[in-house]
Computed example of a mutant assay.
Amino acid sequence: MSATAAETAAFSTGLTAPFALARFLEADAGPARLGLVAGERIRPLEEADLGAPDLNAFLAAPDWDRLEALTAADGPWRPVSDVTLTAPVQPLQIVQAGANYRTHVIDLVVAHAPADDPRPESEIREDAARMMDERAATGEPYFFIGLPGAVAGDDVPLVLPSYSDQHDWELELAVVIGQEGFRLTPEQAMDHVAGYTICNDITTRDRVFRADSKGIGADWYRSKNAPGFLPTGPFLVPAHFVDPSDLGITLDLNGERMQDASTSDLLFGLPALVAAASLNMPLLPGDLLLTGSPAGNGAHWGRLLRDGDLMEGSVQGLGTQRVRCIAEGAGGSR
C-alpha cells in the first residue's frame, strides 16, 4: 500500500479478523511475495508455511488453522507499514455481477425515466421497487466477464486513459473462490468461498454503449478492462471471519463520501450469486466474483475521475484501499 509520510504515520490495516493474507513487495523490487498479516504485522509465507506450492493451490483446500498457529509463532515479522502491499490475489477468471443493489437500480430507473412520463417520482420509485422485488424472487443474476490483466494493487496509480474523460468508480465486495465448483446449488455455494477482498470496478462511461452497434448491448470489454481498472485488495480475509450479509461499503473521493451502503441491500445474495456464476464454467481456486456496486458512483454525482484524485474505498472489516489517479501522459504511460 503506497502512502504519503502522513498516511504512513497513521497507517492501520482496518482488519477486524485475527489474520489475513496479502501479497507484498520489498525494497529490492523483486517479485511479490505472499504474506500473513496479523494485527499491524506481516511475515512472508514460504511453501513450507503454507503447505501448498502457491496461493491458489492453498485456496483449493485452505488450512486456516495452520496459518492461525503461525500468528503466535516467532518469525520474520515486521510492521505492515514497512512493506508495499499489492493485489492479494492472482485470479484466472473474474465474474462480475451487475445491477445487484436494490436501491441503486431503483435510483437508476428514476433517473432515466422519460421526460414525458406522467407519473410522480414517488410512483416511479414504487413501481421500480416492485420490479426489483419480482426480479429477486423470480429472476437470475446478471453477469459479465473481467480480464485478470486489469487487476492491480493500490501500490500503483490508476492511469486514466486519454481516450476519454469519463472514467468512473464502483466499489464492490469481492468473493475469492476456494475449492473448485461447477453447477453448484445455493446450498453448496458458500462451501466454495475461501475469503473476501475489495475491488473497485473502474468503468469508462462513454464506452459502455457503442454508436456503431446499438443493437448488440453493453461493451464491457472496452469500457472496463484497461490496465489497472480493477484495483483489488489490499487483503484477502478468510471467509469464516466475515458475515457478508451486512457489511458497510464506503468510498471517499478526496475526503468526500460518495458511496455509503450495506451489502444487506444486495438484490441477489452471495449463495445465489456463486451458484449462478458456476452454471456456465467451473469456478476455480483464486477466482474473483464481484457482487455489484451500490449507488453513489461518479455518474450519479456528475463528477468523474480526474488527474490527482484520491479514492479511499473500504469494506467493513476488510481494510481500505487508497488509489491515486493520474492522467495518461502525466507520469502514466498506459
Score class of each variant (00 low, 15 high):
Thr4Leu: 06
Gly308Asn: 07
Phe144Ser: 10
Ile326Phe: 07
Leu147Glu: 11
Pro114Gly: 01
Ala61Trp: 12
Gly332Asn: 09
Glu172Gln: 00
Ala239Lys: 11
Leu160Phe: 09
Asp63Arg: 05
Leu36Glu: 01
Thr16Asn: 09
Gln316Gly: 14
Glu121Leu: 09
Asp212Pro: 11
Ser223Pro: 14
His167Ala: 13
Ala299Gln: 14
Ser213Asn: 14
Gly228Trp: 07
Ser333Thr: 15
Asp191His: 13
Phe182Ser: 11
Leu67Gly: 09
Glu46Tyr: 11
Pro44Phe: 05
Pro91Leu: 05
Asn280Ile: 13
Arg130Phe: 13
Phe24Val: 06
Gly98Asp: 09
Ala150Ile: 03
Ala52Val: 06
Asn254Met: 03
Gly178Tyr: 03
Ser81Tyr: 04
Ala72Glu: 12
Arg210Ala: 11
Gln188Asp: 12
Leu288Phe: 03
Pro234Lys: 01
Ala3Val: 05
Leu284Tyr: 00
Val176Ala: 02
Leu85Trp: 00
Arg33Gly: 03
Thr291Arg: 02
Arg66Thr: 02
Leu267Val: 04
Glu126Phe: 12
Glu172Lys: 00
Phe24Arg: 01
Phe143Gln: 06
Leu147Asp: 11
Gly308Lys: 02
Ser81Glu: 10
Asp212Val: 08
Gln93Glu: 10
Leu158Asp: 03
Ile249Gly: 03
Cys199Ser: 03
Ala29Asn: 14
Ala194Ile: 05
Met1Cys: 10
Gly296Leu: 08
Asp307Pro: 01
Gly195Gln: 01
Ala136Met: 10
Asp82Ala: 15
Gly51Glu: 02
Val89Met: 05
His104Ile: 10
Gly75Asp: 05
Leu184Trp: 00
Gln259Tyr: 07
Arg135Gly: 04
Met281Pro: 10
Gly308Leu: 08
Gly181Ile: 02
Gly181Val: 00
Ala211Tyr: 10
Leu251Glu: 02
Ser278Met: 05
Arg222Cys: 12
Leu184Ala: 11
Thr13Gln: 02
Asp287Phe: 03
Gly30Ile: 10
Leu25Asn: 09
Ser164Val: 06
Pro285Met: 00
Gly292Met: 01
Asp219Ile: 07
Asp246Arg: 13
Leu279His: 15
Gly317Glu: 03
Ala72Trp: 12
Leu171Trp: 07
Glu26Gln: 13
Leu270Glu: 02
Lys224Gln: 08
Leu50Tyr: 08
Glu46Asn: 13
Ala69Phe: 04
Ala52Trp: 08
Ala211Gln: 14
Thr86Met: 08
His104Met: 13
Ala29Ile: 10
His300Lys: 15
Arg257Gly: 03
Val37Tyr: 00
Pro76Val: 05
Leu34Thr: 10
Gly248Thr: 08
Gly286Trp: 03
Ala129Trp: 13
Arg257Glu: 06
Gly313Ser: 12
Asn297His: 12
Gly217Thr: 10
His112Glu: 15
Pro114Gln: 00
Gly298Ala: 06
Asp49Ile: 03
Val176Phe: 01
Leu160Tyr: 09
Leu171Ala: 11
Pro231Asp: 08
Ala17Lys: 06
Gln166Val: 02
Ile202Met: 13
Ser314Gly: 11
Pro244Glu: 04
Asp54Ala: 11
Met311Phe: 00
Ala52Glu: 01
Leu55Arg: 08
Pro91Tyr: 00
Thr86Arg: 09
Val95Glu: 12
Asp307Lys: 01
Leu273Asp: 05
Gly75Met: 03
Ser12Cys: 06
Leu267Glu: 02
Ala327Arg: 14
Pro18Thr: 09
Asp260Ala: 12
Glu180Pro: 14
Leu70Glu: 07
Pro53Glu: 01
Ile124Phe: 09
Ala174Ile: 11
Phe144Glu: 09
Leu171Val: 15
Gly14Met: 02
Ala97Val: 13
